[in-house]
Design a protein around this nucleic acid. Structure first.
Length: 399
DNA sequence: TCTGGGGTCCTGATGCTT
DNA sequence: TCTGAAGCATCAGGACCC
């Protein structure tokens, strides 16, 4: 979607159409989330401090964000995409990859597919404009989609992808930001074409995992299929405060708010439990510090997350006031296996069934095929099977 | 000029387990 | 029973994306 939040505001309030709109917080520390295309010629863009944006574009209308509205429209759009492909991989509220393999028979050639998708977005949202890029890899499609924003449409055939990327600056590589671009330039790489021509082993030695990824992006390789929706790896809540804080009681207040919010979201997600929590603080001199801990047992209530956060708070050095207080949960497990108390008398039958299964596996595949997780700390202890030893299917009773 | 909030992924250090 | 190496998990910090 093009300037998504700003476009939504202009859609819902016709008086904003054709005028420069900035979506973002108005308090002293806010930044611009999205600038409408009317505001961009003034040099205003995402992540710019709001005070500076207003100085650059004094006529801009500042609108506070309405995330619930954006989420509603986003889900309408994602639903519409499901009519085009069974594999829709949302990247954020306003961007998604669709695996269109084999769709030409149904929707026509690539450009026709793109036009139909843009029409569908316009129809389900009541007039929002999207840009579509099509190609043989996700990265090339993404770059193609961004070239003619807003309201763009571009198809790059796979055989032309490398030439299409070659003249672009390395800052267009996915994952190359303000820290990495100077490193690339320092070793003589200014264009994506130069990255594609470089020796992949040298790139890997020079830039690690990043180098390997850049090599494959630049060569338009890695045509991975869309993955579909993905399960989150972490869930957080953080807040930049209007005034810096150093009073522990006040910090705890913010941690409590975050803990409750995360707990609620975790439970909404169908009873996910977190095994890890991390407290993040940002000092007034803009230094980020964090401490994390493992939750035993895993939890999804605000009270449990808060309790862990308070304990973590003691592990900071607290040398200066904080401008941001945040909390995140990670390392998720689903609720059901956690609730299976293997040593609960009511579960004894289950336990015995597992024991006999374990014996059956041992008998068939040898002693080393099975090990028991004996860690008394972990409530979800059970039986682990070393798959390296299995050269035949497991007996059915083990499933 | 004065820096958000939601995330993912990578790296290097360290300690534990096998 | 001891020991070293390898592999893994955890932790803290940082870069990046939208």
């Amino acid at each position: 979607m093009d300037a998504f939040y700003a476009q939504v505001e202009q859609l819902d309030d016709p008086s904003l159409r054709g005028r420069p709109v900035l979506v973002g917080g108005r308090n002293g520390r806010g930044v611009v989330l999205t600038a409408s295309y009317e505001a961009r010629p003034f040099g205003v863009g995402s992540a710019m401090p709001m005070s500076r944006a207003i100085r650059k574009c004094p006529k801009a209308i500042v609108v506070p964000p309405r995330f619930e509205r954006y989420m509603k429209l986003s889900s309408l759009i994602m639903d519409a995409f499901e009519d085009f492909s069974p594999t829709v991989e949302p990247l954020s509220l306003d961007e998604a990859f669709l695996d269109m393999t084999g769709a030409e028979g149904i929707f026509g050639p690539p450009l026709a597919i793109g036009r139909k998708m843009k029409d569908a977005v316009r129809d389900v949202t009541g007039g929002l404009v999207a840009s579509v890029g099509l190609s043989g890899t996700k990265y090339v499609a993404k770059v193609a989609g961004a070239i003619y924003k807003p309201d763009g449409l571009l198809y790059v055939p796979q055989e032309e992808a490398r030439a299409f990327l070659a003249p672009l600056h390395v800052s267009k590589l996915w994952g190359a930001g303000p820290a990495t671009v100077p490193r690339l330039e320092a070793v003589g790489l200014r264009t994506i074409g130069q990255v594609a021509d470089a020796d992949p082993r040298w790139l890997s030695d020079t830039l690690g995992a990043m180098g390997r990824r850049f090599a494959s992006l630049a060569r338009a390789e890695n045509p991975r299929r869309g993955k579909g929706s993905r399960r989150g790896r972490s869930m957080g809540s953080e807040r930049t405060l209007a005034v810096d804080v150093s009073d522990p009681a006040e910090i705890k207040l913010h941690l409590r708010r975050s803990a409750d919010a995360i707990g609620q979201r975790l439970r909404k997600k169908g009873g996910m439990l977190a095994r890890g929590v991390r407290v993040k603080l940002k000092t007034s001199s803009f230094r980020s510090v964090s401490r994390q801990a493992t939750l035993r047992p895993a939890a999804n209530t605000g009270a449990a997350l808060y309790q862990a956060a308070v304990e973590l708070l003691d592990r900071f050095e607290h040398t200066e006031p904080y401008r941001l207080v945040g909390l995140a949960a990670f390392d998720f497990v689903s609720e059901r296996p956690q609730q299976l108390e293997l040593f609960d008398p009511d579960r004894l039958a289950e336990r015995l069934r597992l024991e006999s299964t374990m014996d059956a596996i041992r008998k068939r595949f040898g002693r080393d095929a099975v090990k028991r997780a004996e860690d008394q700390e972990r409530p979800n202890r059970g039986i682990a099977v070393n798959l390296d030893h299995l050269d035949a299917p497991l007996p059915e009773t083990s499933t």
